[in-house]
């Protein structure tokens, strides 16, 4: 039986193998995604971002527990950074999800960024397509959370949670970093710690400017993820947001935007491959010589190469 046949029979070993093929951009990865694409679109995707140590993994763990108890199948993608020097990575999010691992309907995959800078790995979206096609009802995606603007998540999810903690005390700073703009729901985790109320009211003040009557109200939810407190409330808000964007056709609009960037990504990658195939190092060396010695300028040289590609 082929891997795809096994995948369609819900064999997790096959799912996992196909995820690697896609992540590694194995020769057949486009064909894999293309043949499964018609099965996607059913999963609801929730992104979780916020600084390291804020409790993202713990929240994912607890949210997933609730979701599977209610009969949902859940896929989780947890992204951690690759070392820019060695390409290696230490992926530790599973430590917070130990008991989930063996539960029915759960599939957790850790991904290293492998050089990608927007908070997700290059292939995170494609991996979520596979989980979707596999039949997951919900997909939770945890970003790296190193603090830069992690805009990738908006492009890969339907609802985005941004997690704050009392000791960060930097909601203003977060605004600068662009975090405020990407959140649909604000989570203040570690509510057991001092300063939680202050953060909530600070966020509240900032959000008041943005909240408009009759529109989505950007709720703030206090949680204690380790103590499993506030999780039901958070899940309720996620469902409310889903209902709101579905009824107001915002989900449809958002997903069409995502398809556009998907299309662009597919074409850009193909072009890059084409270029790499047609432009050998020797070729490039030759051109550099010509430009250096003044025989040609780099702009016309570049144009000529592109013309020769016969797109």
């Amino acid at each position: 039986m082929s891997l795809l046949d096994r995948f369609l029979q819900k064999d997790e070993v096959a799912l996992s193998r196909l995820i690697s093929y896609v992540e590694n951009q194995a020769p057949d990865y486009r064909k894999i995604l293309s043949s499964l694409y018609s099965r996607t679109g059913k999963a609801y995707r929730v992104g979780i971002t916020g600084p390291p140590g804020a409790g993202k993994s713990t929240l994912v763990d607890k949210l997933s527990c609730d979701l599977i108890q209610n009969g949902n199948e859940v896929g989780i993608i947890a992204v951690d950074p690759s070392s820019p020097f060695t390409g290696g990575a230490l992926l530790g999010d599973r430590i917070r999800m130990q008991d989930l691992t063996t539960k029915k309907g759960i599939f957790i995959r850790s991904m290293a960024t492998r050089g990608s800078l927007g908070g997700l790995a290059f292939a995170t979206k494609e991996v979520s397509l596979l989980l979707d096609a596999f039949g997951k009802d919900f997909i939770l995606i945890e970003t790296v959370g190193v603090g830069q603007i992690e805009l990738d998540i908006v492009d890969a999810c339907d609802t985005t949670l941004v997690v704050f903690v009392p000791e960060s005390g930097d909601s203003i700073q977060a605004m600068k970093a662009g975090l405020m703009e990407i959140a649909d729901i604000f989570v203040v985790n570690k509510a057991d710690r001092e300063g939680a109320n202050r953060i909530v009211s600070e966020l509240d003040m900032i959000l008041d400017v943005r909240r408009k009557k009759g529109e989505w109200n950007y709720p703030i939810v206090s949680t204690e993820a380790v103590n499993n407190k506030g999780i039901d409330d958070l899940l309720k808000k996620i469902k409310e947001h889903r209902k709101y964007i579905t009824e107001n056709h915002l989900l449809e609009k958002h997903r069409k935007e995502q398809i556009k960037s998907e299309l662009k990504k597919i074409m850009e990658l193909k072009l890059k491959e084409l270029l790499e195939k047609n432009l050998s190092d020797a070729n490039l060396d030759q051109l550099a010589e010509k430009v250096y010695s003044g025989q040609e300028d780099p702009y016309s040289a570049g144009e000529k190469i592109l013309e020769n590609l016969n797109l």
């Binding site: 070993v13 060695t86 290696g88 530790g92 691992t101 957790i108 290293a112």
Partner: peptide, 27 residues
């Protein structure tokens, strides 16, 4: 990690079932 491997660390007190399940999910 420093030698270029992707390491998935699952933490303490793991049962054989947990280890094998995680190994499969992580391929």
């Amino acid at each position: 990690r420093d030698a270029g491997f992707e390491v998935i660390y699952t933490g303490l007190r793991q049962t054989a079932e947990m280890i094998v399940e995680a190994a499969i999910q992580e391929d």
